[in-house]
Design a protein around this nucleic acid. Structure first.
Lengths: 185, 185
DNA sequence: GATTCGATCGGAGGGATAGTTA
DNA sequence: TCTAACTATCCCTCCGATCGAA
């Protein structure tokens, strides 16, 4: 649980959308932000069970699709990638960030695994610009759009591709899928 | 100010939509909940003007009266403008081109009127990079995306806004609409 | 003078490649 | 020592504020 500070007016706005006695701020906000059930369910049981159980639960809750577990996965990533937008970027950095943002959207839950990916002495990913700046010089940290994650940007395109590869692998993609992702850069 | 307690996941969701360094929870939430006005607006102009002026400004800028012809026109332009895409551009040039591209899409027929818009000795618009290059030095011509038109790009932001204004006027927009367009930059 | 306009030039971003380290 | 992996310097391009010109 986290505490955040909001202004009076916003508070009243949230309160006014209460739909049941004793409803929590999280619950109201989730409804207002359309972040309903799916994620709720996982959250609600976290208190009682351990990590592994949660994973199991998730699979139950998530799409019970047949075979194409991988197929839907890659399609999801590409659903969040606007080819037009990608090709519009003036350099590899823009594309890099867009691809990472797409992967983040699809893998919010375990995206933090990217924090394990790093170079010999520089960090590659972190949750703040500072951490990255401190791990090397001129690392040029950039925030992955709409995510709390940051990446290092000072590297050649080859290394950016390697980084993408590692991220894709960490998210569980297979060789072919990884190749597709890396080719987007 | 009020404090509310929310779950970890919801917290991450909110954080991930931060759009500026040090942005407050209220500000992010207001954006996500489309509660634009209120404190946000006031904040943005606080530096320059006093409270009374703010109130006035707000009322003026709000509500674009219902005048069917104008309404549909402005809606058309905005249909072709992806706010996300705009805010993603790293500089004014990117936004400038995107806005012009949107106007072009809506006003293909008489867009060539922009060729009349020019500076003291430089051309501002033309149908080729060469024409623009020849009319001045380091004019940095860029093609308006998905159009046969080119614009000069070497100018300060103020001038780019003026150029947008002239284009909007040439396309027949009224004062309020022009202001909305120029504010996109 | 006052104002508008042009384009130079300082600054930031991008990323290949020279240099460093294991 | 040689090589592979990694870092970050440094050159190039883009941006656009600023200041000189008209």
């Amino acid at each position: 649980m986290k505490n955040i500070e909001i202004d009076e007016e916003l508070y009243q706005h949230i309160v006014s959308h209460t739909q049941s006695i004793g409803e929590s701020a999280s619950s109201i906000l989730r409804r207002l932000l359309s972040l309903t059930n799916g994620e709720n369910v996982k959250k609600d049981v976290k208190i009682d069970i351990d990590k592994d159980d949660i994973e199991t639960k998730q699979y139950v809750v998530e799409e019970p699709q047949e075979n194409p577990a991988q197929k839907t996965k890659i399609e999801n990533v590409f659903n969040f990638i606007n080819k037009e937008e990608l090709s519009m970027q003036r350099g590899a950095v823009g594309r890099f960030l867009l691809i990472l943002a797409a992967i983040y959207r699809v893998h919010k839950q375990n995206f933090s695994a990217v924090n394990e990916i790093s170079g010999r002495d520089r960090l590659y990913f972190a949750n703040s610009a500072e951490e990255l700046s401190e791990s090397g010089s001129s690392t040029k940290p950039r925030q992955i759009p709409n995510s709390p994650f940051w990446v290092i940007t000072n590297s050649n395109t080859t290394r950016k591709k390697m980084m993408l590869t590692k991220v894709a692998v960490a998210m569980g993609y297979n060789e072919i899928e990884v190749e597709k992702i890396r080719e987007l850069l």
